[in-house]
């Protein structure tokens, strides 16, 4: 298989994969809101209540600090 063929397949599959992921993401966003597992809209308030003394929308808990990257 020459490189152009590999390139074409890679393009096709990866693009298809990303499209699937994107649609999966849309589904995830709406279904988790409907099921009540997570309301994404509340994150919009991060910008509004942003004083250092404001209560975080979701606090970094001690447990999660440990396995946090960066």
């Amino acid at each position: 298989m020459d490189i152009a063929t590999i390139q074409a397949y890679a393009y096709f599959f990866f693009t298809g994969f990303l499209v699937l992921v994107l649609y999966g993401y849309i589904y995830h966003l709406y279904s988790s809101e409907k099921k009540g597992t997570r309301d994404y809209e509340k994150y919009g308030n991060i910008a509004l209540n942003d004083e250092v003394t404001d209560k975080p929308v979701e606090k970094v808990s001690d447990n999660e600090t440990k396995n946090k990257e960066a």
Partner: peptide, 12 residues
């Protein structure tokens, strides 16, 4: 799965 990524800056 998606939310896992959203709160992990490195993997994000």
């Amino acid at each position: 799965m998606f939310h896992w990524l959203e709160k992990r800056p490195f993997f994000f």
